[in-house]
Nucleic acid binder design. Structure first.
Lengths: 233, 233
DNA sequence: CAATATATTGAACATGAGTTCAGTACCCAC
DNA sequence: GTGGGTACTGAACTCATGTTCAATATATTG
């Protein structure tokens, strides 16, 4: 930081401190006093600017989502290829990837919309890959995009374990040029490049699912969104 | 429930209620009073049997991990194939998959050990697949197993979003015979079966990673970045 | 400069959490 | 039965948290 001064407004400092806290220690450990201390202000000021803890969280969500949208358009123009998360890893994102990893576990409207967008974007990315000849076409572009997105996001959620086992920090903004990248990306590209199943087995498995689906589909044809679950004990 | 009686001891009822709570509403919303109410006992009894909330959580972890180990040996004998999570979905697991989805996000020693085991198991499963001709061999069995395990576990963590978007409940014990399975498994097997990248692009990407890795390795000290083993045998 | 609004503080309050504990009911050896 | 140990209750305690608020400093404006 040049001049040693922080020219961010106190409100912005609080928001950034909160994002860092949420990312580092999780929502449950992120208290108003902790955020205030991190931002170098009093606890009362947090309430003054954000009304409540929920309001603070909401502002953080908005800021993070907005940041992502900005880099997304940028990444789209550069051609991110199959790496769904590439957009998140451009410079100056700080704690945002780790913050996202935390918020993905929840079911807030914001996280739902974010995931919907990412899945939709993935479909676009993959489609471009198909057009440019990098990626094979498929009968189920949406399903394939969803699976790819969930795999990427899930790995991001497990980034601490990934780092522990493979030595790669998936939240690292400089991951693209990190020497550790290969231990994650090499297996990924190997799997995506040629698959891991033999052709025979894959064809067999796929036809099995179609059989089950067709079989059950003839007896029960409804497609309900929100369904069962809950305590039957 | 025959006879309408619950022959579980109160301690077991509390533990099961806690697992259900942790799975359904998450650790932060799981209070001693809520667990007690769910189990039909007084809050004091929770403390009497488990000493503290942390003790209760620990007991739940132990019970869940133990349950998984039991089904793992069973699944191993049946040949689970590439479905890493198949072992978790055999009958009578109740809230355990959702509980795991919640605990994976943390960094407790228990969750670390559990993930280490799952990754290690995945390597074993894949190796069997290679031996039986279902799965292609690889130069990096450990890396490939880790990626597959993280993808599976990550998807499990996102099960609520997966259900919302694709209509599949990955925590459903009866998933294997569910008509909804195909919308998840079909893209998965398509990707794993033939990959999604064209051969040219995959080879190109892979060699790029090797180049980066080798390049950085020659200019910087290798030791601090290469603290894990890439290949095992 | 005066007046008004905004930023900021730190102490006080209310709530809900985990935990403690004295007391009660149940069960089983002697 | 009687005594003692275990299961169990529910109220009370402690503490951390979100939130409120009056007071003060700083900035803005007329």
């Amino acid at each position: 930081m040049p001049d040693g001064v922080d020219d961010r407004t106190a409100k912005a400092r609080i928001r950034d401190a909160a994002i860092a806290c949420f990312a580092d220690v999780g929502p449950s450990q992120t208290t108003a006093r902790r955020v205030a201390a991190e931002a170098g202000v009093s606890p009362g000021l947090v309430m003054h600017h954000f009304g409540s803890m929920e309001g603070l969280r909401s502002s953080c969500d908005d800021h993070v989502v907005e940041t992502i949208r900005r880099m997304k358009t940028q990444a789209l123009s550069e051609g991110a290829g199959i790496d769904i998360l590439a957009a998140l890893r451009h410079a100056d994102v700080g704690h945002i990837p780790a913050y996202i990893a935390r918020m993905l576990g929840e079911e807030t409207p914001t996280s739902q919309r974010l995931i919907d967008e990412i899945v939709s974007d993935a479909e676009t990315y993959l489609e471009r890959g198909v057009e440019s000849g990098m990626i094979r076409p498929t009968d189920d572009p949406k399903g394939r995009a969803a699976v790819m997105a969930f795999w990427s996001l899930g790995a991001l959620m497990l980034h601490r374990h990934v780092e522990r086992i493979l030595g790669v920090d998936l939240t690292d903004p400089d991951l693209a040029t990190s020497p550790t990248l290969a231990s994650w990306a090499a297996p990924v590209y190997e799997i995506l490049g040629e698959g891991i199943l033999t052709q025979d087995f894959a064809a067999n498995a796929t036809s099995t699912f179609h059989a089950i689906s067709a079989d059950e589909g003839s007896t029960t044809d409804q497609q309900d969104t929100d369904d069962h679950q809950e305590n039957e004990r």
